[in-house]
Design a protein around this nucleic acid. Structure first.
Lengths: 343, 343
DNA sequence: CTGTCAACTGTAACCGGTTACACGTTGCGC
DNA sequence: GCGCAACGTGTAACCGGTTACAGTTGACAG
């Protein structure tokens, strides 16, 4: 028996074949209202025979819910996004929702067009805005949405962000504890708010303990490996070389590592190095990279959960939630073995 | 002026407000049929005033096309998938399509359920099957689909795959050219067809040049870093140690690298090492990793292009297309500088 | 025997668009 | 002055489901 599905037939044809009304078919398939066992059996049989598959578009129109949510991302690049999508997908699947994903949206006008095009396609939105357009994004009224990272000033929607400042502070404390005083930072672009938050948190932690960030030790990159490499090369050339480098993400840290090795500087003896994100390979580098772990997938899952909560009852207060960022110490900073984590 | 969009109003209300019929509204908005300039102006004005946004769900129902395509993936993990999605998204955007993405589908029954749920939501499908379920996936008749990697035996749909064998052959030739004869392979799981194809291609290339793969030098991993690490540790313990290792992907190669360094073996002097995928960080490892580059994003884009072609005209013959895999030589294998690529 | 009620099922009006067809106006050629 | 075409617009029937409301039937209490 091949249960071939046949998308081309409609509920009325099934009704005719089963000699009942369309209402009955619908009721059987959705387990609504009372149905005589015999009727149910017959309907189910016909449905299977014909390979009838309900048309969910039509269903959505009449029930006014699509059971799918839109995911709007500024970009789809690197491990961060697969993790994020994985988490969101997980949450969606659990609740029987589908994901309409769209990436590469830096232009606010583009996002606006997308938002219109999504009307009638999704029940809610998960939006990750880039700093450039966060302020300009207008979610249509009545559409539940959750923001990731930057959110529009309005504050009318729940949002969710990584504890960038906390993670950066942890790195700062760690480096200070190791005795470093001359510390460099390789930041992301100034437009990126994650990068800004990390830099700000780091700076604050240092000055909190009486250490100032020397402006000449702040180099900005773009979150890619190559920029980290360039930054490290520049930093190494300084006459008063830093003893430690904090890169605003792991990709740049890896670039730094590559440059340092090339220059014959050993890590952590000559220069200590820390990253942010804790990508899977961080622990396999040599030396293994000290980094800050953020549960990205979990963030996606939480975002979805909160969106679904917002979908069910319109009462939840807009709330900003923070995903913890925890320091993972590895050999790239720890001079002494006893400071090393077990991973 | 804030052009607030108001999702809650329908075309009939707009029609009433503009004192025309719904047909006229529809025609103006879709630039169909002849419309008097004055009418058009008035309609557009009212539309803007009211912030009317057409309900695309309803539109889909009546036009019988959703302008979105389903993307079914076995998993969403690592850089591979963000690249793939990025490519697909790019192609989709260009053509005005949306993406319904769903990951984590290893169970054929689950895929089947998903396929049903997608009926009426998408116009076509891009399916990446895992080896386990490829045979069991039944695309409903009449639904255009493109397969990535494994495809159902039927061969009734176009498919697209990476030239795993070619890439592996290139690695084999390269290692042989360097004089290696005792070469180990760290494969992925036997269930994974990419891994199998790489192993098979590698073996064939070796025997083509009179070198046999010693069974004790074939270790299977799972495509993750940790398994590469374990494999390298095991290989290094052998009394007749291999002089080169080919890992079926970069993540495992990175694991190998970590283990080798830990054992005090230098790469490539003691053991040469090559990976597959050419992830962005490959060139930043130390030593930079020889790998095989595959244009994943391009594959996604091509897949989308072919799907769209299939959507427009039902005539295209099912064809298997192969994405090239090119060897990128770096220091992890090249003993001699003159063999090094420039990247 | 009749009224009441529960259990089933059917009819038809939605959901919000698109579009075939019909209709009323003009303008123009003869 | 009349016929006819082109233009602009409206009416209403779809698309394929859901569901309020309205039966029909049979059991059972009064």
């Amino acid at each position: 028996m091949d249960p071939k599905s046949n998308p081309s037939i409609s509920i009325r044809e099934v009704a005719a074949a089963a000699r009942v009304s369309v209402a009955t078919i619908s009721r059987v398939l959705n387990s609504k209202g009372p149905i005589h066992p015999d009727t149910r059996r017959r309907v189910l049989e016909v449905v299977a025979d014909l390979g009838y598959v309900p048309h969910s578009g039509a269903r959505s129109l009449s029930t006014r819910q699509t059971s799918s949510v839109g995911v709007i991302l500024p970009d789809v690049y690197g491990e961060f996004f697969s993790e994020l999508i994985r988490g969101i997908d997980l949450g969606a699947k659990r609740a029987g929702y589908h994901l309409l994903v769209s990436g590469s949206h830096s232009d606010p006008a583009e996002v606006d067009a997308l938002l219109r095009a999504l009307h009638g396609r999704v029940d809610g939105l998960i939006v990750m805005a880039s700093t450039r357009n966060a302020g300009a994004i207008r979610i249509p009224p009545g559409v539940p949405a959750v923001f990731l990272g930057d959110s529009p000033a309005s504050g009318s929607h729940p949002s969710m962000r990584v504890d960038n400042a906390g993670g950066a502070r942890a790195v700062a404390d760690h480096l200070l504890d190791l005795g470093h005083r001359r510390i460099a930072v390789v930041s992301g672009s100034a437009e990126n708010s994650d990068s800004e938050a990390r830099l700000a948190g780091f700076r604050a932690a240092l000055s909190g303990r009486g250490v100032d960030l020397d402006p000449e030790l702040i180099v900005s990159g773009d979150f890619r490996e190559e920029s980290g490499r360039a930054a490290a090369l520049a930093l190494a050339k300084l006459e008063n070389r830093p003893t430690a480098i904090f890169a605003a993400n792991d990709a740049m840290a890896i670039g730094c590592l590559s440059a340092l090795r090339e220059l014959g500087l050993s890590v952590p003896e000559d220069v200590a190095l820390a990253g942010f994100d804790d990508v899977p390979i961080a622990r396999y580098l040599s030396p293994p990279l000290t980094s800050v772990r953020v549960a990205i997938a979990e963030m996606g899952e939480r975002a979805m959960a909160r969106l679904l909560a917002g979908l069910e009852e319109r009462g939840a207060e807009p709330l900003e939630e923070t995903i913890p960022a925890v320091l993972v110490v590895r050999a790239s900073t720890a001079g002494r073995k006893d400071l090393l984590g077990s991973e």
